[in-house]
Design a protein around this nucleic acid. Structure first.
Lengths: 242, 242
DNA sequence: TGAATAGTGTCTCTAAGACATTATTAT
DNA sequence: ATAATAATGTCTTAGAGACACTATTCA
């Protein structure tokens, strides 16, 4: 049988119907704590609950493109750090039908995150409480940025968010993801504060500086931060490692 | 609108047709080198090329269950280490139709891997050459276990295999995956040989032993290996960390 | 006893934590 | 000068690499 003949005879429905979606964990830092952007579900199922922004994957669209489109449509964002996390395929994770969802992690610098909360129609920033440490992970909870009790998340989105936190923590000190949470130019203190916010711990200053400067990721700009009432710190720029 | 009404009105085809598959990277150690189990594609598309064993995901089947079923059907294997790797969604990765594939990594101890090559109908072990080091990764090549030139892999399976090697290397020394490549009872030397095979480097013996024994993963069995013509080494058992 | 590998002692070196000290700027 | 934070020096400690040495078993 030729390939053409095979393709003509191939039945796409032989294995039943199943939809593929993406859900995006759009994270940033807010007042020294990790935060995530949620939407309020206005329609059933689970209307009223908070959810991660998401959408179905088009037949002529890659997974990365679908995640980028969701960010564009729901948050007006483009050109931000975006990486695939994990694919969630529990049978009843969505009551509508069988929906398998590819989870993505997107990261924004603090200023852009705050701006997105104002500009993105319906985007609600929520602070993430992470009650665990270590590589085993565990559940996290979310609260409205302006305090208040814990929020309920729709579907399995609490699991997705918990995995996002675990991955982010795990990658933080051996990869360059941390820089995606900072503006183009930043001080070493800001970099440390980002790490401390994500890890939920305080870090030793000299050791942190040594570690960061020993990697060849930081390029001094020669410019110092303006507007301080004390010795102005050097501004650095992230340089992709060779 | 109630949830029931919503579900009744929901159109599963609104976003077009797309199939979901799993592809399994079944790895083991062979003569001190990483190896993978491949199948020869007998039908189009790409008949004749080697491929990872895979299959479509059933509508009432989780992703993990689909990967486990593929291992059962194509290799006669069950109860082995199985973890999700990444989801591949390039538009034209399969010429038949849009097929998104969730890649899984499965690991077998050396003896079980060799046995599977004999028992699994059509399973062909291939040795993996990994020409890179470090966390950036890169392409790998495969050769037939009995030497010979490099083999061509179908679809994007070379990318999937390369990612599997990168992940395995990355997780090896901070997680317990290494033990999935060993029998229930093993010597410290065997454990080191597994690490050396996967990492493609030689390791310092005292440092390796110290590191492994300092984690609380190894439980001495009190039994020593039999059949040696020299001092018989202690056999250890893997104990899940608390 | 010799061969072969198991298993350990120890020195060095690197990197992190802790803490203190010096440096630099605005007011 | 003072206040405030930037930036660094240094001591200690933990862990890895290197290498040699001792231990144990079989033939």
């Amino acid at each position: 049988m030729s390939e053409d003949a095979f393709l003509a005879a191939y039945d796409p429905d032989a294995y039943g119907r199943l939809a593929l979606a993406v859900d995006v964990v759009l994270m940033g830092i807010r007042d020294g704590r990790p935060a995530v952007m949620l939407v309020r579900r206005e329609e059933p199922p689970q209307a009223g609950l908070r959810a991660l922004p998401g959408g179905f994957v088009g037949v002529t669209e890659t997974l990365d493109a679908a995640a980028a489109r969701v960010l564009r449509e729901k948050a007006g964002l483009s050109d931000l750090h975006l990486e695939q996390l994990y694919t969630f395929g529990a049978i009843d994770r969505d009551p509508r039908m069988r929906i398998v969802s590819v989870a993505y992690l997107a990261l924004l610098p603090e200023a852009a995150f705050t701006a997105a909360a104002r500009n993105g129609a319906g985007l609600l920033p929520a602070v993430i409480d992470v009650p665990w440490a270590g590589e085993a992970g565990g559940p996290v909870t979310v609260r409205d940025a302006g305090e208040g009790g814990p929020l309920a998340l729709a579907f399995d989105h609490a699991d997705i968010l918990a995995l996002a936190m675990l991955r982010l923590r795990g990658k933080l000190d051996y990869s360059a993801v941390g820089f995606a949470l900072l503006p183009e130019r930043f001080t070493l203190r800001q970099l440390q504060e980002v790490h401390e916010a994500i890890l939920g711990t305080s870090l030793n200053k000299p050791a942190f500086r040594r570690r960061m400067l020993d990697r060849s990721w930081l390029e001094p700009t020669g410019v110092r931060e303006a507007g301080t009432s004390f010795r102005p710190p050097e501004l650095y720029r992230f340089r992709r490692p060779r």
